[in-house]
Nucleic acid binder design. Sequence first.
DNA 1: TCCGTATTGAACT
DNA 2: AGTTCAATACGGA
Length: 163
Amino acid sequence: MKVPLIEIPIATREGIFLARYSENGLAELKFPQVGRARAANQEKAPAQIRGWQRLTEAALKNVLSGRAPKKFPPLDLVGTDFQRSVWNALRKTSCGKTKSYGEIAVAIGKPKAVRAVGGACGANPVPVLIPCHRVLAANGKIGGFSGGLDWKRDLLAREGIKI
DNA sequence: TCCGTATTGAACT
DNA sequence: AGTTCAATACGGA
């Protein structure tokens, strides 16, 4: 059974992101949509979620400025154990650094699962905060990005990373 | 069970 | 230096 998530937009210089919260924390973060980014349930947001929203907004803007966020909201990630271990490994990639899909695979103890790592990255519900954009292919190629390669290049450039 | 994947590294033009 | 190709783990249908 599925509880509707509370959606709250986050305005940044880059556009309006959309955060979705469950009762346990931030569940999804979406890039600015080309079409409409309409807020739902914002009025009903409990105080707790409004607090998370503050943290999310601050963290997001820090990353967009190329800085490491001081604090993160709690995350409520839905996925398989494998995916969560990948996402967890991704969070250890500090600002200004990059890793290859292969390195992530090694980090989670499955060195051969490089392609599956790519799949898990694509399934990442919270891009930017979970820095899937800092994962490049082994030969330094850009790889891919669910929010669009322009975003990936731009985010990397803000952290001083060249491709 | 089969198919696609945000990979990789080696073997070929 | 560019292209093809098999190996490989996982998730969705």
